[in-house]
Simulated assay, not measured.
Amino acid sequence: MGDDEILDEFRASEALLEGHFILSSGRHSPVFLQKMRVFQYPDRTERLCRALAAAITAKFGRIDMVVSPAMGGIIPGYETARALACPAVFVEREDGAFKLRRGFRIPAGGRVVMVEDIVTTGLSSRECLAAIREHPGELVGAACLIDRSNGRAEVGVPLVSLLRLDVPDYAADDLPPDLAAIPAEKPGSRDLKA
């Protein structure tokens, strides 16, 4: 899949948004990728994740398990694992930290890749990778559908992305005037309350 084909999946799903957005990292951006609008379409999600699985295999070889962070990583993790013909599990927050729960286990010696939806600063990825390292298994790397940092985010392991974008993001106290003039929206799920 080429870059234009990948972006076309987001555009066709009305998932490439422009305005003023507060990202899950707390940074502000004029562009937001509402990946859940893409994930509502199984055929689009399958195409993207099949391409990601091919990139993972090309970089890391055989994979025995995919681990993803909840919430946004569950669907692409599952669909990528399906293309890799391996199990998919996820970590979720417990007392503020990612943990494997629900009886999920990483097998000793199993080759594990962490699959994320979108990387901006790499914080969620680093937190997920820290949780994976608490278990046996060989952590071979990480993968994401879109790397918004254009390769600048450090996750601590090799990162494969289906698409790299150079999307600007800013600290809340350092907004350009045109962005500051637009009311901010927070469309992500990180801080949702029950």
Rank of each mutant, 00 (worst) to 15 (best):
A194D: 15
F60S: 02
N150E: 09
Q34T: 01
I74W: 02
V67P: 02
A70H: 06
G26K: 07
G19A: 10
A131T: 05
R50S: 15
D178Y: 14
Y41F: 15
I63H: 02
D95V: 04
M36H: 15
I75C: 09
G141C: 07
A81V: 09
F21Y: 10
A108N: 12
G109H: 05
A181K: 12
L17D: 06
R190V: 14
H20T: 10
R47L: 13
V38F: 06
T120N: 14
A12D: 14
P176N: 05
L123F: 12
S161K: 11
A131W: 04
E134N: 13
E138S: 13
G2V: 00
A130L: 12
G19R: 03
G19V: 05
A12T: 13
A53I: 12
A131Y: 02
A81L: 10
E14Q: 15
M65W: 01
R190C: 01
P177V: 09
S149C: 09
V157Y: 01
S189P: 00
P87D: 01
G151A: 11
G77A: 08
T80A: 14
E127C: 04
E94H: 14
E46F: 10
F104C: 03
E9W: 05
G156D: 02
M114G: 13
R190S: 13
Y78E: 04
C144V: 13
D117G: 09
D147Q: 06
S189F: 15
F21D: 04
G26L: 10
E116A: 15
G109L: 06
R11A: 12
K59S: 12
R37I: 00
M36P: 00
R93D: 05
V91G: 11
G26P: 08
L100Y: 07
A58G: 13
R101N: 08
F10V: 08
K193Q: 14
I132N: 01
V38M: 05
E92M: 09
S13V: 12
F39H: 14
V115I: 12
F39W: 13
A184G: 07
G77W: 01
F21I: 11
V115E: 05
T120Q: 09
L179P: 07
P87F: 00
I146S: 04
R11G: 01
A142H: 02
F21S: 07
P107Y: 01
A153N: 10
L179T: 10
P168L: 08
S25D: 10
S125A: 15
V167H: 03
V160L: 02
A53W: 03
G2K: 13
E185C: 06
L17Y: 04
F98R: 11
G188C: 09
A70T: 14
Q34F: 01
F32W: 11
S189E: 15
V167F: 04
L84P: 06
S25C: 13
F32V: 11
L159Y: 06
V113D: 00
R102H: 12
D64A: 08
G188T: 11
F104Q: 01
I56A: 03
G2P: 01
D3Q: 11
R37Q: 12
F90M: 04
A181W: 06
Q40E: 13
A181T: 09
D178C: 03
E5K: 11
L48R: 08
P177Q: 02
T57S: 14
M114H: 07
D4Y: 02
D169V: 00
C144D: 05
E79L: 03
A142T: 05
E154P: 00
A12E: 14
I63L: 08
L123E: 15
K193H: 13
A51N: 03
Y41D: 15
E18S: 14
